[in-house]
Design a protein around this nucleic acid. Structure first.
Lengths: 343, 343
DNA sequence: AGAGCTTCGGAGAGCGCTCTCCAACTCTGT
DNA sequence: ACAGAGTTGGAGAGCGCTCTCCGAAGCTCT
């Protein structure tokens, strides 16, 4: 026998037909227990492993999904895109959540990055070639064109975060405004009177929502004007934003940063200026990422159930693959406040 | 026509045979330029995309590779394994390097984690089923059993780091000892007299080598005894290790941490104890990761060309796939010292 | 001008699997 | 004892592609 054993080999060894072996493997009933047992033994003897390509060819399913990180082209840093993406604990959590859900099903995500036109085309082609059955997409940018491309090609996909334009694609998202409101309420309840915020990049919908939610809530509490410094969701950008706020506004006693990493940067800036946290300035972050507990003091933050949301993405995609007629759905998760030491 | 267009459809549209279309697509010469053009036009017209499963079935190649992160089972933290892995900038750099090399070739890695017996079996089965042609393996642990499993199954693989036991598998690695030596030389040249080190977990070969290299070099410089505190390559573990060193050794004026993340922790501990860096204590890290420049002061560190090494892994794997008879090779990269502010 | 090349395109045999028939067989009920 | 129903297993037709043969031209060379 040349090459790895095939169904035919197993069938011969078990003294049955190819079809019967296939039935046993795919768990189809109507196979006599005794024969089932014989087949199983033959499989073990021959060391048979089904060939995925042959199977895909007829089932038209690969059992693979793509995990696509889509974002803006060149960033300010010199890092290449993939490295930069991983620098943020956020992506690691998404990947962890996706893998956690998919792995027990024997599915492993194909990692793709789509920060350029060329790369986006590659993603579409990859899916069209049937390398994967669908895509899980997490955009780092609001105006990402990939969701539309996917929708137009009628390729099954689920997004992390609502698309900028209405598109017939399912997605999961967080109630960002509600989360920001929790932060505002907490700072006010704590007695903060002069509160500022470090927003994320304002071309990202999530950043817009967090800012808007925070401003609305502060307005309700009688603070119609909140100083804002825009950051880029990175540590140094948070640090610089804090510097700007400190330079422009005396007596600041509370800050809401739109993610933990920037809050961490803010902490560094505050320390450099001799402000104690939380005594002089209370700081609230967002995400409840690993950065939140790595900080000193540990961050009070808004919990973003990224892993659960990523798992839900997987669930939605598989549901769609199982029944393509299924309606497009979205699922919005609710944030909660995690109180630690910084506020 | 039902379903996506096939080779047959294109052939009919171009008025040639299936074989000719296949030749054009696969860039085989011996096709008249005029016919080539006609075929190309037919492909564009029909919107044809080759079916990867059908192709794999006959070529016995998928054009996919697995990127496997293999490590110890449960860690001390409560994080699930995948998330924890991403928390370290190291893995992001590996992924970035791999993607950077593979993507221009149209190859995208399948992300797999293998921290349990069950997960390791899944990896082997996945490869045996022909879901991917080979594996790129990065172990977080010395005694990882996966390399041996892969070797026994004769599955093509390339490791990041030398395997604990000799195995017929190619790998890339860093000259860790030489790197640690650079750190020692720098600290001594700077005038440090009382130098300690924070090592990585000593069941990891790379951590052993860095420690041994550092000790050897210090011995050469007349410091046969160097205080050691073992860390776990994580930020908090570096911070705690530094605390221990400070508690046990007065007048410390230099520290070598076996990676940047622990150096960052050490910085925090030193600051908490009112020691200035580098004036009171000089700190040298290892890796030259994003953490090195995110620190204040920026870390002097040993450069670990992770991205280049990851790309080389890809290159070695593809070479092996292209010619399975190729001998097992290993490639050791040389580190260099990057001097910044911390030492 | 015909033998001997090279060049080019088509025919057709699979690659390993799933799945739809269909045949054979085992039960029931009358 | 036999028709009709329900089970169980086999035969065989593809899935879409690659690639090895071959045959048909178009050459060069003697």
């Amino acid at each position: 026998m040349s090459g790895p054993p095939t169904l035919e080999d197993v069938a011969r060894a078990a003294g049955v037909s190819r079809a019967t072996v296939s039935r046993v493997i795919n768990g189809i009933r109507n196979v006599d227990p005794a024969i089932q047992e014989a087949v199983r033994r033959a499989i073990a003897e021959t060391g048979y492993v089904p060939n995925q390509a042959a199977r895909s060819l007829v089932t038209r399913r690969t059992g693979a999904v793509a995990l696509v990180v889509s974002g803006a082209g060149g960033g300010p840093e010199e890092d290449p895109f993939p490295s930069r993406v991983f620098a943020d604990p956020f992506f690691g959590r998404v990947a962890g959540g996706v893998v956690g859900f998919l792995r027990p099903l024997g599915i492993h995500p194909v990692l793709m990055f789509a920060e350029t036109e060329e790369a986006r085309r590659q993603v579409v082609t990859y899916l069209r070639q049937g390398n994967a059955d669908g895509a899980l997409l997490v955009s780092t940018h609001g105006a990402d064109p990939l969701p539309r491309l996917l929708a137009e090609a009628r390729l099954p996909a689920v997004l992390f975060a609502r698309p900028a334009e209405p598109l017939p694609i399912s997605y999961v998202d967080l109630a960002h405004r509600a989360g920001a409101r929790l932060a505002a309420d907490h700072l006010v309840a704590r007695g903060c009177r002069r509160v500022a915020t470090i927003s994320g990049p304002l071309d990202v919908p999530a950043a817009q929502d967090r800012l808007a939610g925070f401003q609305e809530a502060m307005a309700v509490h009688g603070h119609p004007y909140v100083p804002v410094a825009e950051g880029g969701f990175t540590l140094p950008s948070g640090e610089r934003a804090m510097e700007r706020l400190l330079a422009g506004h005396d007596g600041l006693d509370g800050v809401f940063a739109a993610n933990d990493v920037m809050a961490q940067g803010a902490l560094a800036a505050l320390r450099a200026h001799g402000r104690r946290v939380p005594d002089d300035v209370a700081v609230v972050g967002f995400d409840d990422s690993s950065a939140a507990t790595a900080c000193v003091p540990a961050l009070t933050t808004v919990r973003h159930p990224v892993e659960d949301m990523a798992a839900e993405m997987g669930r939605l995609l598989l549901a769609h693959l199982g029944d393509p007629g299924q309606p497009v759905t979205s699922r919005i998760f609710e944030p909660s406040l995690v109180v630690r030491d910084s506020a």
